[in-house]
Amino acid sequence: MATWAVVHLIHVRVPHEHIPVLVIRDVPEGERITVGLLERAGFRYGEFGSPWANHYITRVNEDSPSDLIARIRMGEGRRISYEELVRRASAPL
């Protein structure tokens, strides 16, 4: 199982900041978290009226930015399981 995150990237200063806004737990190996899946589940992020501006989706692993890992370990960001995300994405409107 893997962990994925939606990350708000602040890049106007150095060092850049990688802030998790949504952390998806227990993602089965081989599955990907996509914009389409997130939006169907009711999650949409962005800035300045532009969807997904300064936000990205990534699998979190040992190569992820250290500040992102630290923030996730400290509990930042909303948490959801992959199972719940898929359930929300396929729920009737």
Score class of each variant (00 low, 15 high):
Phe48Trp: 15
Trp52Val: 10
Val86Tyr: 05
Gly30His: 07
Ala53Thr: 07
Pro20Cys: 08
Glu31Ala: 14
Val35Gly: 05
Val7Leu: 03
Ser50Val: 14
Ser81Phe: 00
Ala2Gln: 11
Val23Asp: 03
Glu17Pro: 02
Ile10Arg: 13
Pro65Ile: 02
Glu83Met: 11
Gly77Val: 03
Ser66Pro: 10
Gly77Arg: 02
Asp67Leu: 07
Ser81Met: 00
Gly49Ser: 10
Ala91Ser: 11
Val12Arg: 11
Arg88Phe: 01
Glu84Thr: 10
Arg32Lys: 15
Asp67Tyr: 06
Glu62Thr: 04
Gly75Met: 02
Ser66Val: 14
Glu39Leu: 03
Ile69Phe: 05
Met74Val: 09
Met1Gln: 11
Arg87His: 09
Gly36Ala: 07
Leu22Phe: 01
Leu22Val: 02
Met74Asp: 15
Arg13Gly: 13
Glu84Tyr: 00
Val60Phe: 00
Ser66Gly: 10
His55Val: 06
Arg59Trp: 03
Val12Trp: 13
Leu22Asn: 03
Pro20Phe: 01
Ala2Ser: 13
Gly77Glu: 01
Ala91Leu: 08
Glu83Gly: 05
Leu38Gln: 01
His11Thr: 10
Trp4His: 09
Glu62Gly: 09
Thr58Ile: 07
Pro65Ala: 08
Val14Tyr: 15
Pro92Ile: 12
Ser50Glu: 14
Ala41Tyr: 00
Ala41Leu: 09
Met74Ser: 12
Arg44Lys: 15
Glu17Gln: 12
Gly46Thr: 07
Gly75Lys: 05
Ala91Val: 00
Asp26Arg: 09
Ile80Thr: 04
Glu17Gly: 05
Arg79Phe: 08
Ile19His: 13
Phe43Val: 05
Glu17Lys: 11
Arg44Ile: 14
Val27His: 07
Val60Thr: 08
Ile24Phe: 02
Ala89Asp: 08
Val12Thr: 10
Ala89Asn: 10
Val35Phe: 11
Phe43Asp: 04
Phe43Pro: 04
Pro51Glu: 14
Arg79Ala: 01
Ile69Met: 08
Arg32Pro: 11
Arg40His: 14
Leu93Pro: 10
Trp4Cys: 05
Ile19Pro: 02
Val21Cys: 09
Val14Ser: 15
Val27Gln: 03
Arg71Lys: 13
Ile72Lys: 01
Arg79Gln: 14
Ala70Arg: 15
Glu84Ile: 02
Arg71Ala: 11
Val21Leu: 06
Val35Asp: 05
Trp4Glu: 00
Ile57Leu: 08
Ser50Leu: 15
Arg88Cys: 00
Thr3Tyr: 00
Val23Arg: 02
Ala2Trp: 12
Glu29Gly: 12
Val27Thr: 04
Arg13Glu: 15
Pro65Ser: 04
Arg71Trp: 09
Phe48Lys: 14
Ala53Asp: 13
Leu37Gln: 07
Arg73Phe: 01
Val86Thr: 12
Phe43Trp: 09
Ile19Cys: 00
Leu68Gly: 02
Leu68Cys: 06
Trp4Gln: 01
Val27Ala: 01
Val6Ile: 03
Gly75Thr: 08
His11Cys: 11
Pro20His: 06
Arg40Asn: 13
Pro28Gln: 02
Arg40Tyr: 08
Ser64Glu: 00
His55Thr: 02
Leu93Gln: 11
